[in-house]
Design a binder for these strands. Sequence first.
DNA 1: CTTGCTCCTCTAGTCGCTAGAGGTTGTAAC
DNA 2: GTTACAACCTCTAGCGACTAGAGGAGCAAG
Lengths: 139, 139
Amino acid sequence: MEISIGELSRRTGVKVPTIRYYESIALMPLPLRSDGQQRRYGGAEVSRLIFIRHARELGFEVDAIRELLAMSARPEQPCAEADRIARRHMTEVDRRISQLVALRAELQRMVDECGHGRVGDCRVIETLADHDQCQHAHH
Amino acid sequence: MEISIGELSRRTGVKVPTIRYYESIALMPLPLRSDGQQRRYGGAEVSRLIFIRHARELGFEVDAIRELLAMSARPEQPCAEADRIARRHMTEVDRRISQLVALRAELQRMVDECGHGRVGDCRVIETLADHDQCQHAHH
DNA sequence: CTTGCTCCTCTAGTCGCTAGAGGTTGTAAC
DNA sequence: GTTACAACCTCTAGCGACTAGAGGAGCAAG
């Protein structure tokens, strides 16, 4: 099986320039080339790129994906490391969720309190301007 | 009241280079200068920067903050616009929350099913590699 | 008047792409 | 066999929202 970069893109849902970008940062390996220097891929690349896309959708950073890919290449190793990466990531996700839930509540309040008055009375502005009235999540 | 950029930074929790960056993109106005060309700020700048920081923490983009600041400068206008911005943002926040909650569940599952064996049996790796088993949020 | 922190400007780097210019290859129809 | 045209190539630059560093000047305390 020899497919072009466009076909690889179609099969994985990763855009063509993004694939080339992944190659440039060595997240994807240097592919074979046709006589006319066009990239040619096989099944291994399809799998690898699906793995990458999936991990990116889950919010893993490229460095974390590199680690995960390195691990999957050595299946005899214990997987504690993969577990650690996933756990670290989950902690971060929890933090983001709680921040967003707090934010959501505040936006709701802002919209609720913004009757049909004028900006002078509008809580959207006030809520954001007032430092003391709204103490919430700091990073 | 005449304060330095460092003092402004301390009072607002916004880093010094970030304040200068905000000035460069005209989110903060050009400040007064000391004889030696150092920036000098007053109370208005403190309020404005707290407003900006707060809005950034809430996830508003700089352009949205610019809109909100423009509105607050014209308090005779109706606040329908501010309301519209807040609503638009809330929809986006809802979307992000539900994505993250789904992601959190999947990470939990990955970690749970990783039996601390070898990578070959690790669900973290498998889950990422398997295209069909995990069909979730696409942007 | 010297020490040493804060301030200045400027440039370049970060992350993860995305867009465009300007040229070449592959393929299908004629 | 040629022609048309999509898909490919490399290269550079841009996005948002900062962050880091170099190299120098200002300022307040002792």
